Measured scan of single mutants.
Amino acid sequence: KELVLVLYDYQEKSPREVTVKKGDILTLLNSTNKDWWKVEVDDRQGFIPAAYLKKL
Rank of each mutant, 00 (worst) to 15 (best):
R44E: 05
K54A: 12
D42I: 10
L29H: 05
V39W: 01
D24H: 08
T19K: 04
Q45Y: 10
Y52L: 11
D43E: 13
T32D: 15
K34D: 13
L5P: 00
E17Y: 05
L5M: 13
N30P: 04
S31G: 11
L29R: 03
K13F: 06
A50W: 02
E17G: 11
Q11F: 15
V41P: 00
N33A: 09
D35P: 02
S14T: 12
F47W: 15
E40V: 11
K55C: 07
K21V: 10
L7G: 01
V18F: 08
L29E: 03
Y10W: 10
T19G: 05
L56W: 08
L53C: 12
Q45L: 07
N33S: 12
T32Q: 12
Y8Q: 15
Y10F: 06
L7E: 03
V18L: 14
K34I: 12
Y52P: 01
L53N: 01
E17D: 05
L5W: 07
Q45R: 10
S31R: 08
V6A: 07
R44Q: 07
V4P: 00
F47V: 07
V39T: 02
Q11A: 11
F47I: 09
V20L: 03
D9N: 09
N30S: 13
K34S: 12
K54C: 11
T32L: 10
E40H: 08
A50G: 05
S14E: 09
Y8K: 12
T27D: 06
D42Q: 13
S14Y: 08
E40R: 10
V4M: 03
W37L: 02
I48S: 03
V39C: 07
V4T: 03
G46K: 04
Y8F: 15
T19C: 05
D43N: 14
K38R: 11
I48E: 00
A51L: 13
R16G: 15
E17K: 05
R16N: 13
V39H: 00
G46C: 08
I48K: 00
D43A: 12
D9S: 10
L53T: 06
D9T: 05
A51W: 12
D43P: 03
T32V: 11
L3P: 04
A50D: 02
E17W: 04
W36Y: 11
K22N: 05
L26G: 13
I25Y: 05
V4W: 06
D9C: 06
L3I: 08
G23D: 06
V20N: 00
L28M: 04
W36E: 06
N30Y: 06
L26C: 10
L53G: 07
L28K: 01
G46D: 02
Y52T: 08
E12R: 12
K22H: 06
I48C: 10
P15H: 10
K55R: 14
P15F: 08
K34M: 11
P49C: 04
Q11C: 11
G23E: 02
F47C: 09
K38V: 15
D24E: 12
K38I: 11
I25E: 03
P15G: 11
V18A: 05
D9W: 03
L29N: 03
D42E: 14
I25K: 05
D42R: 10
N33I: 06
E12F: 11
V6H: 00
R44W: 12
S14N: 13
S31P: 05
T19Y: 03
L3Q: 13
K38A: 13
D9A: 07
P49M: 04
Y52W: 07
Y8A: 13
L3V: 08
K1D: 08
Y8G: 07
V6S: 02
K54S: 12
D35R: 14
V18W: 07
K38M: 14
F47H: 06
Q45M: 10
V39S: 00
T32E: 15
L53Q: 01
I48L: 15
V6I: 04
L56I: 13
G23W: 06
L7Q: 04
K1R: 12
Y52F: 14
W36G: 02
Q45G: 06
E2V: 15
D35S: 12
V39M: 01
L29I: 13
D24R: 10
P49F: 03
V4F: 05
L5D: 01
G46P: 03
W37C: 03
K34L: 11
Y10V: 01
L29S: 03
Q11M: 15
L5A: 06
L26Y: 05
K55D: 04
P49H: 04
A51C: 11
K38Q: 11
Y10S: 01
Q11V: 13
L26P: 01
V41W: 07
E2K: 09
L28P: 00
Y52E: 01
E12I: 12
E12Q: 13
W36K: 03
L3H: 09
K13S: 11
D9P: 07
W36A: 03
I25W: 04
D35T: 14
V4I: 05
K22R: 14
